[in-house]
Amino acid sequence: MFLKLCSARDSNQFTVSVNVEGNSTAIFVLIYEELLVRSNGIYNHDINLHPGNLVPNLKVVVNIKEPQVISTLRVPELRTGNDVAATENDPQNKNAVIEKDDDDQGVTITFKPDLEEQKRLAKVYLEKTKDKDSSNRYSRNTETTQTSTVLGQFVVQYDLEQPCTGEVFISDGYFAHFFAPTSLPPLGKNVIFVLDISGSMIGRKIEQLKSAMNTILSDLNEYDRFSIVVFNSIVTVQDLKDADLPAPKTPIYFPTVNSSSKNVTLVPPSVASPENIAKAKKIVNKLVANGGTNIYEALLVGLNIKDKGVEWDTEKKSTSNKGCSRCNSGWEDGWDVEWYEPEEIHNKLEPVIIFLTDGQATVGETNTNRIIANITKKNFESEPASIYTLPLGKSY
């Protein structure tokens, strides 16, 4: 018997090669270990269901046995892997059977989709992952409903009652002490969203971006600040006062103009109040995908906003500064705004850049290595921001 695990990128796959006598039965048992990481107050266990064919007796059983009481348990509907992480508001899997132990420290979840349910799930998975707009010139998806047998990710989410002093595990003379504090206040953030609305985002991916942004915006705290940078061939910083303007119409051509970060009109970061969050969602939900992909200049704009802080004055400098060439231009980059950053605010808000894109740069700087190197250097010229990337769909 030969067992081969695939690369780390495809670590949810493995292959088995074995000779089996005709008219006999072979049972394969795969045992592996996986570290469950507690994120946002919940443990996630994902099982990828890609049987390759419809299976008459498909059954997934998840047994959980913990030393502490299981305080939260959720089994959401099957997901594609590109979906935003499920929350308590998401629909639950109606076909999952949950049996809890009497001591509430163990639970067994059983999922047995029959052939009709497998066909339905495969169709749902395909519909969620393919572009809705069949006219998308960027799409090269050749998968059909006849060949797809991917059902999705079966997800189990749970959490435990956390002792005030943490948990101590002892085994074979070793011990581990786990801490999961629940009383720490959330970290204040100055969040800059950098959103890809290029032509390759047409269809499902722009809808994924909007869904992700609506979820993330809802999770911001009222003392956080945020900015929204959108880009295709050009880069634009969104102004919340434009939230009620009509949605832009998709142009009949894709603009090839390349914008520079030095010429972008900047907008002050907004307080994450309920009113501002509602305005931001309006703007995001009206985004239209078209044009090229100017990743480098978009990230530069995000970093420049980060560098200038969270408090700034949009008024032009007074005419008394005419004798100062630097004051005349505002900053050496040519902006006409004056920034200031009180130390007490700067120390409270952690700079964070959240970058949502689907693929490769096609406008401006397109060399990936140079983009990474230059953005990294620029980021560390002042207090560095944490940069998180959320990939959407496939890059073509």
Score class of each variant (00 low, 15 high):
residue 188 G to H: 04
residue 222 E to Y: 12
residue 237 V to M: 04
residue 225 R to Y: 15
residue 253 Y to T: 14
residue 52 G to M: 09
residue 241 K to Y: 09
residue 49 L to Y: 02
residue 175 F to G: 02
residue 198 S to Y: 09
residue 213 M to C: 12
residue 356 L to N: 03
residue 104 D to K: 14
residue 115 L to S: 07
residue 257 V to N: 13
residue 18 V to Y: 14
residue 32 Y to A: 13
residue 99 E to S: 15
residue 260 S to F: 06
residue 207 E to T: 12
residue 216 I to W: 08
residue 361 A to E: 06
residue 212 A to V: 11
residue 172 D to E: 15
residue 321 N to W: 14
residue 122 A to P: 00
residue 325 S to Q: 11
residue 163 P to V: 06
residue 80 T to G: 04
residue 285 N to F: 07
residue 27 I to G: 00
residue 72 T to F: 12
residue 179 F to W: 02
residue 132 K to D: 12
residue 104 D to P: 00
residue 228 I to P: 01
residue 374 N to M: 10
residue 344 E to T: 13
residue 327 C to F: 07
residue 289 A to K: 07
residue 164 C to V: 13
residue 347 N to L: 14
residue 35 L to S: 10
residue 71 S to C: 01
residue 5 L to W: 13
residue 167 E to F: 05
residue 117 E to M: 13
residue 103 D to L: 02
residue 308 K to W: 05
residue 270 S to A: 15
residue 149 T to I: 01
residue 21 E to F: 07
residue 139 S to Y: 03
residue 205 K to M: 05
residue 193 F to Q: 01
residue 215 T to F: 10
residue 352 V to D: 00
residue 293 T to C: 06
residue 277 I to L: 15
residue 307 D to G: 10
residue 108 T to H: 01
residue 156 V to Y: 05
residue 262 K to S: 11
residue 337 V to L: 13
residue 202 I to K: 14
residue 105 Q to K: 15
residue 123 K to L: 10
residue 199 G to M: 06
residue 178 F to S: 03
residue 234 I to F: 03
residue 122 A to N: 04
residue 324 C to H: 06
residue 24 S to K: 15
residue 17 S to M: 06
residue 305 I to T: 07
residue 168 V to F: 05
residue 177 H to A: 04
residue 188 G to L: 09
residue 226 F to K: 03
residue 236 T to D: 10
residue 225 R to W: 07
residue 115 L to I: 14
residue 305 I to S: 04
residue 184 L to G: 00
residue 106 G to L: 07
residue 382 S to C: 01
residue 205 K to I: 03
residue 148 S to Q: 11
residue 321 N to I: 01
residue 113 P to Q: 09
residue 82 N to T: 11
residue 305 I to P: 00
residue 140 R to V: 11
residue 67 P to Y: 05
residue 202 I to N: 10
residue 26 A to T: 12
residue 332 E to N: 12
residue 311 E to A: 11
residue 341 E to Y: 10
residue 229 V to G: 07
residue 112 K to Y: 00
residue 236 T to E: 14
residue 212 A to Y: 15
residue 200 S to I: 05
residue 178 F to Y: 13
residue 14 F to T: 03
residue 4 K to F: 08
residue 366 T to R: 13
residue 89 N to D: 15
residue 150 V to T: 15
residue 310 V to C: 08
residue 112 K to V: 10
residue 380 F to T: 14
residue 379 N to C: 05
residue 222 E to I: 09
residue 380 F to N: 15
residue 290 N to E: 08
residue 80 T to M: 02
residue 282 K to Y: 06
residue 94 K to A: 15
residue 52 G to F: 11
residue 31 I to C: 07
residue 36 L to K: 09
residue 241 K to M: 11
residue 205 K to W: 11
residue 372 I to G: 00
residue 97 V to T: 13
residue 320 S to D: 11
residue 316 K to T: 05
residue 242 D to Y: 09
residue 319 T to R: 01
residue 32 Y to V: 07
residue 148 S to K: 07
residue 330 G to H: 08
residue 11 S to L: 04
residue 152 G to Y: 10
residue 23 N to M: 12
residue 27 I to E: 10
residue 278 A to C: 00
residue 277 I to T: 12
residue 14 F to I: 02
residue 287 L to T: 08
residue 43 Y to K: 03
residue 325 S to P: 00
residue 144 T to R: 06
residue 123 K to S: 14
